[in-house]
Design a protein around this nucleic acid. Sequence first.
DNA 1: GTCTATAGTGCGATAGAC
DNA 2: GTCTATCGCACTATAGAC
Lengths: 188, 188
Amino acid sequence: MVRWEPGAQERLAAAALELYASRGFEQTTAADVAQAVGLTERTFFRYFADKREVLFAGQEHFQQVFLDGVAAAPDDAAPLEVVAFALRAAAAFFPDERRGHSRLRHSIISANPGLQERELFKMATLSDAIAGALRGRGVSEPQAVLAAGTGVTVFTVSYHRWLAPDEGRPLADVQAATFQDLRALAHA
Amino acid sequence: MVRWEPGAQERLAAAALELYASRGFEQTTAADVAQAVGLTERTFFRYFADKREVLFAGQEHFQQVFLDGVAAAPDDAAPLEVVAFALRAAAAFFPDERRGHSRLRHSIISANPGLQERELFKMATLSDAIAGALRGRGVSEPQAVLAAGTGVTVFTVSYHRWLAPDEGRPLADVQAATFQDLRALAHA
DNA sequence: GTCTATAGTGCGATAGAC
DNA sequence: GTCTATCGCACTATAGAC
């Protein structure tokens, strides 16, 4: 009998998703999640700063995908074109195989205001990071913040469309459509 | 001796602002705030669902100002023009006399992630409300959500510029400038 | 790994306003 | 008497300190 199985963080995250989905976020204690994978509450809080954070592990990676997309844009690209590059990179992070998992996670989050707050904070952090990257490319203020904010809005709208029950297109296609809608709006 | 003075909620909110600013949000307990105005912790939670909410009282009023602005726009205005009407109405909600108070409140919020989360949630709620109002005017999806999101981005950027120490222009002027920056971005 | 402060809830009691 | 603001007490879970 081994003292501990490897991958504690991943197992905790998986158990949390399952328990939050089945009995609800508030009805699940950190101790419940830990116990489900044979660990103690104390260990749960060693890996995750709080009970919500377990649904947001991998945020750094997620954010880095956008920043890589920014870096991949040609030097002479306009700010909104750079942002479009970032979104295209992000789409690769959400292949169709992941849609089911994303839908489950989203259903948990949308059922709890505290989780929605955390999600919004993560998106705002992402926006700040993109704005910083744009500034690093020579885009001045407030254009950097505006372009980043607009990009995150397009991503969020597209992501929610992508999760809709009747939606079948890949995220990249939905994003392209949303960008078109934004252009139509700007020229109206 | 009366059992209770009127205006408990307002007095609690004022005391909270002062204490959160002086000793910090986390270093202030709900009991501290209540005690400062001669009430108990239990009464604090009667008025405010949680310790953060005390900084966000009056949100309904704030939101309504935007919605009134939407309603004031001419029937044939394009979505982004309608949003511009909403922001102009919002600017009246933040006259220069209020800048000091807004700066203090903002300094408290930006020092605490939990408060930032709540603020972002309130802005997202505002965005949803504006999108709903646009839909009520016949704007279809996803244009309604995109226009609302863009408007809230412009407001947020402008509001932060307005709070900057070296900024002297009224909010309405800053918003007009930010809108110009956005247009330049869209046409680049 | 244990111990503790604090957030936040539920329910009941009390004290005034009307 | 009713209605409502306030308080008191007991309790759980989170989260951080030791």
